[in-house]
Write a protein that binds this DNA or RNA. Structure first.
Length: 288
DNA sequence: ATCCAGCTCTGGTTGGCCAA
DNA sequence: TTGGCCAACCAGAGCTGGAT
């Protein structure tokens, strides 16, 4: 299989082909990791909900300057951990948030995005991300998913597959899923979206296909390879190098992983280290 | 062969700690 | 006070092995 072209060398043909392949690839990817038929069905329903039903039901909420409901956020988190790496504790953490606080903070994040006409600047995205990351269980990775619901055209979801494709050289390095890494991704994706005239959510799906090519059948593989062949690589490679230099400069200016303002917001008898440690001890005792 | 309890694996989020 | 690093923590899915 031919290697996936670099982001600066990718063509809209390749992205469109990946988008055509995406629905069947998702089914195969889910089948590979979910053995229970009922859970598989639920996961595929969530997949449809996230990309088709939620955007339409969110139209009204957006028009009323509203945020996401707690139920919607919980379901998105559930989708995220099925779609990507399993993080079973995340739903429980998100569940701890007060329903009104969830709507409040997502609305605040969206208000920040709305304050700027056109595609949001890096500073605006950081500010919006800070707002949604005030929620328990929502870090930069999940936070970008919430922002992506508001602006699927310009704000990419921090997805493993996308990062791996954008920064192929970083494969050996373990992702920290912090704001710094997301800003790297954001800055790199922006020119690609502009050049190809595609939405961030479409590039998200395409990169998922690029990251799971082991699930392609022969026909799909050939189709994608043919699409890769359309690339105009030479001119773009220098551009890619220049972009990478720019990104390196930007990342030296980024902020801390977790906003300090968020620290200490948690509390109460059900949260915090002591409770976690008690649970750990209980768990260990049970195992003995 | 089947069932089921217990074990292991997983990595994003959080908060403690230290340096500047 | 802020930034950066890093270990602790979470619990469901899948796996394993003993019991029937």
């Amino acid at each position: 299989m031919a290697p996936v072209p670099a982001p600066s060398a990718i063509t809209s043909t390749a992205v469109q082909t990946a988008l055509e392949i995406y629905p069947s690839l998702v089914v195969k990817a889910y089948q590979s990791k979910i053995k229970d038929p009922k859970k598989l069905k639920a996961a595929l329903e969530r997949e449809t909900w996230r990309f088709e039903e939620l955007p339409s039901e969110f139209v009204d909420q957006k028009a009323q300057n509203g945020g996401l409901s707690k139920d919607q956020v919980e379901r998105l988190v559930q989708w995220k951990i099925t779609h990507g790496q399993s993080r079973p504790f995340l739903p429980a953490m998100v569940r701890r948030n007060d329903a009104s606080f969830v709507t409040e903070q997502t609305a605040l994040g969206y208000k920040t995005l709305r304050s700027e006409p056109g595609p949001p600047s890096t500073a605006t995205v950081i500010a919006a991300l800070d707002a949604v990351c005030k929620l328990s269980g929502i870090g930069p990775a999940t936070g970008t998913l919430l922002l992506n619901i508001f602006d699927p055209a310009n704000i990419p979801f921090f997805q493993d597959e996308m990062y791996a494709w954008l920064f192929a050289e970083s494969k050996a390095t373990k992702l920290k899923y912090n704001q710094k890494e997301y800003l790297q991704l954001f800055e790199t994706v922006r020119p690609v979206l502009k050049k190809l005239g595609v939405k961030a959510v479409e590039l998200e799906k395409a990169s998922y296909v690029f990251g799971h090519m082991e699930f392609l059948d022969e026909q799909e593989r050939n189709k994608l390879e043919a699409a890769f062949g359309n690339e105009t690589a030479q001119d773009d490679k220098q551009e890619a190098l220049d972009e990478e230099k720019d990104v390196a400069q930007h990342t030296t200016e980024t902020k801390r992983t977790t906003p300090r303002s968020k620290r200490g917001l948690e509390g109460g008898p059900e949260t915090g280290l002591n409770e976690q440690k008690r649970k750990k001890i209980r768990s260990k005792t049970r195992k003995q």
